[in-house]
Design a protein around this nucleic acid. Structure first.
Lengths: 176, 176
DNA sequence: CCTATCATGTAATCCGTTACATGATTAT
DNA sequence: ATAATCATGTAACGGATTACATGATAGG
């Protein structure tokens, strides 16, 4: 049982296990897909490796079903719950970066033709608009817990981005 | 000269070289710090390794000063400029993910005390507010090129986030 | 002259992604 | 039956971060 660095991915796994109880990697994948996955995704393979990593550190326990497929079932340990709570109790959180590839293209767009900027902006506005509609639909049926509350920022962000890109497409920045 | 995968980091380097001309890793660091760095950062070590990677693929050329410190100076090649332009001409860009650690904490906050949510929200609102002020100051002196245009999304995002977190701190979501 | 700070670089580690692969279930 | 899809897993590679380390330059 060694010490490992706890990444956001780690806390996603710990959080899912704490909230939803014991789970197989596939259960985790499901939980992520229609939960945090809306603002933080990763490939399913990480939902196999990360619990194993956490098990090394004693933060989750691994059990194997002894019938049928002998799937791995992970559950959070006391130590794991403690680690999660410590993290949650710490108000520290770095300012998130936008890290938007579309924005990156816009940033360097002086090196290409204005028409490409317009095409990019249109596409981005459309994509954000679609996502916005999805979030609006979700918020219709969402509860009122903290998980549901995160939808608020998603809505605000998609709204702002849709408007921003629409503005760029209608009124492209000066070209040198 | 082998083939490599071009990542966003690659295009940041290519973009900086295309826009600003030949540069040493340190020049790149400077350019990034008060440019793209506002929405996409990476450690300086990557501004040493990434140009080398790009040189392997023939997208940038490396020259060494032959006096003094013999620093490395990189410049973009025709192939590099082509790669950059191809990328810019492609309107394809994945929807960015929020990937906000603070939001992640909020998502799982059912596993902790409400007071911690309030502390987190206050902190986040304050941080975003500071960043908002910075962007406002920058937009006073910014030009009107495409790089400057990216400030628009930054402003909108920080505004939305400041408001969102203020709302959470004043009116925390229900606790189970 | 000395010591901060700026500038420049390398090495090692590791998380995250991509690719590969096969076992179960369901539908036609 | 058999194709399709869902479910489950492993291996390998590489980009990104962290840590380490030293060379120049300016200020006191």
């Amino acid at each position: 049982m060694s010490t490992i660095a706890l990444t956001p991915t780690s806390y996603v796994v710990l959080g899912c296990l704490a909230t939803g109880g014991p789970a197989t990697p596939y259960d985790l994948k499901q939980a992520v897909t229609d939960g945090v996955g809306y603002f933080w995704t990763f490939p399913h393979s990480q939902l196999y490796s990360e619990p194993a990593r956490l098990a090394q550190a004693g933060l989750v326990a691994e059990r194997r079903e002894d019938v049928g497929r002998r799937r791995r079932v992970f559950s959070i340990t006391d130590a794991g719950r403690q680690a999660l709570e410590d993290w949650l109790a710490d108000p520290m959180a770095d300012l998130p970066e936008i890290r938007d590839t579309g924005l990156l293209k816009l940033f360097f767009a002086d090196n290409t033709e204005p028409e490409h900027v317009v095409a990019l902006a249109r596409r981005q506005s459309e994509l954000h608009g679609q996502r916005l509609k999805l979030y609006e639909a979700l918020s219709e049926v969402a509860g009122d817990g903290t998980a549901a509350a995160t939808l608020g920022l998603g809505l605000a962000w998609e709204k702002a981005a849709t408007v921003f890109w629409a503005g760029v497409s209608e009124n492209p920045p000066a070209h040198p």
